[in-house]
Structures are given as C-alpha cells and as structure tokens.
Simulated scan of single mutants.
Amino acid sequence: MEFDNNTPRTTLGGRNQAAKRLRSALSSDSSDHNEGDLSYLDLDSGKVLQASQKTSESKVTLTLSEYDALMSKLMLLEKGLDKLNKLDKLDKIEKSVQSMNNKIIDFEQRLKHTENSSKEFEKSVNFVSSQFDDMVVQRNTDVVKLNELELSVKTITRENDEIRAAMIEMKAVNSSLKEELLDVKCRAMRDNLVFTNIDYTEGEDCENVLRSFIRDKLEIREEIQFERVHRSRPHSSKYVRFDKGGKPIPRPIIAKFSFFKDRERVRKSGRFLKGTNFGIHEQFPEEIEDKRRPLYPILRQARREKKKAVLVKDKLYVEGEEVKADAYHIKNKGQGNQPNTDGPHSQVSA
C-alpha cells in the first residue's frame, strides 16, 4: 500500500495502531487464498474482499481523505470490538446476576421454609399457651373446689368433734345411768339372800322348805317374815348344773326378807353350815355377780389360811387390803395352791 507524499506524518503516526490491526486482519485472511490474490477490507460492508494481483510490485494508492475515512471506519470497528468485549463482560455480569438470583431464590425458599417453621412454631406456642390457659383455668377451678372441700372438711371435723364430745358426754351419762341403775338394783336386792344346794321336791312350797331349812340347819326358832320366796330359774334342762359327782345341783332359793334385821341374823348364822354343801350369800345384780364370781375362791382360800377376808359388794378385802383376782392369780401362778373357781358354797358367807 502506498500513500501520497502529501500525507502528514502526524496523521500517520496517530493511526499506527489501527493500521497494524488492519494489516493483521488482512494478512490472516489472505493466508487462506492464493499468493496471487489480494485481500482487503470493505469498510462499508465490513467484509474482507479479494482482488487478483498480477505482480508483487503492484501498489494501492489512497488519498488522504480516503485514508481518513478508512481510519474512521477502522476506529468505529474498534469501538464495536470494545462493545463486544463489554458484551462479554455483561455476559459475565449476567451470569453473576443469575447466580445471585439463584442464591436469592434459594434464600427466599429457605426464608419461606423458615417462615413456615416459624408459623408452625407459633401454632405450637399458641397451642401450648392455650393448654396452659386451660390448665390455669382448671387449676383455679380446682383451687375453688379444694377450698370448698377444705371448708367442708373443717365443717365435718367440727361436727365430728361436736358429735364425739356429745358421744363422750352420752357415754358418761350412760355410765352414770348404769351406775345409778346398778345401785337401784343393789338397793332392791339388799333385803335378799340366796340359799344354795337345798334339795328340790316336785310341787314344793319354797317358803315352807326355807323355813324348815332355817329352823333345822341354822337353829333359828323365831318366826321370820318374808316378802317373797322362789327358786332362781324355771326348771329346764338348759339351767341344770351338775356337781363333781355328776349329780344335778338344785336351783338356788331366793328369799326377800320383810325386815333387814332378820336378813342379817340369818346371813350371820351361815357359820353353822361350815362343813356342809349348803351355802348362804347376798343377792346382787348380774353385773356385780360377774365381778364377785372370780373372788369367791380367793375368799375361801384366805379364810382357810385364817386370814381376815371380807367381800363387800364387788370388792374383796384381805387383811384390810383390796385384792384383785387378776393380780392374785399372777402372784400365785405356779405355786400349786390355786383356789377352786366354783361358785359360792357353804363356807362363803359375806
């Protein structure tokens, strides 16, 4: 390529870089053609064209205006290449943006999952809170019921204490009434004496039998006045008792004396019955008799030992000291001198 001599040097120096790029493009394109062909760039169409070259000595002459136009188009081409480079950068940026979008989408999905989990957690918290509220309400209800129960228990306890106090008072009153009734019974029987082991005869007159017994066995000739004389129980096999020999024991005769002095005279005459099977003792209510029954053997034992023994109502005194049946049996256990536990006989006359 040959330039006009009128071309300024400064213009050529400023466009060396563009010329180099052009030559590079032309040389690269011309390598694909025959050595005799000439390749050039049509700046209007942007295509590389070929022209036949007859000799290697041929030259292309450009005017300055053509050269400037060529350089301008070359610079425009360079700017287009720069834009292409920028487009590559934009692709990279787009890829980065796409990656960021993917990350944002993933983050949004995670955030959505977190929101769902948060909502589920909130539901759970609300459920627990509701349950807790229900428990608080139930607890308050239970507290009210418990207070009512405590009040009821206190009321029942107070009523129970009142009932217990009333029962204790009733027991005391009952015990007092029993004592009074027992005392009344004792007073009603204070004029009575019980005569044991007197033979029974069918169709007998108990009063005549007793008068004969007092006259013959106790040697009392004076007339004794009785209010009433009878056998203790109706004659029945249920009440039949037997002595050690298997002989039936006659039912006792109970006599109510008209005068206490006559009763005491007959009772004290019981010493004449010593050594016989007959007996005389005072009559007491069943409650007193149950307490006296275990004392009779101790009384007989004490009298056999020549000790002063007196049975007063349901208490036994030996040598002036009260003796209880339980304590006496424990004291004399294993000594071989246990008294007979049978009922009162002729030796016992209180």
Rank of each mutant, 00 (worst) to 15 (best):
L70A: 00
L77P: 03
L77D: 14
L77Q: 05
E78S: 07
L81P: 05
D88L: 15
I93R: 12
E94S: 14
E94N: 09
S96F: 07
S99F: 08
I104G: 04
I105R: 15
R110Q: 03
H113Y: 09
T114S: 11
E120V: 00
F121I: 05
K123E: 04
N126M: 08
F127Y: 12
F132S: 07
M135A: 12
V137R: 15
R139D: 08
N140Q: 14
V143G: 03
K145N: 07
E150I: 11
K154C: 00
T155S: 13
R158K: 09
E159S: 08
N160H: 14
N160Q: 15
E162C: 05
A165I: 03
A165T: 07
I168N: 11
E169A: 08
M170F: 05
K171L: 10
A172V: 12
S175Y: 03
L177A: 01
K178G: 02
E179C: 04
E179T: 13
L182T: 06
V184C: 06
V184A: 13
C186A: 08
C186S: 06
R187L: 03
R187M: 04
A188G: 14
R190G: 07
R190Y: 15
V194I: 06
V194W: 02
T196W: 02
D199Y: 09
Y200R: 02
E204I: 00
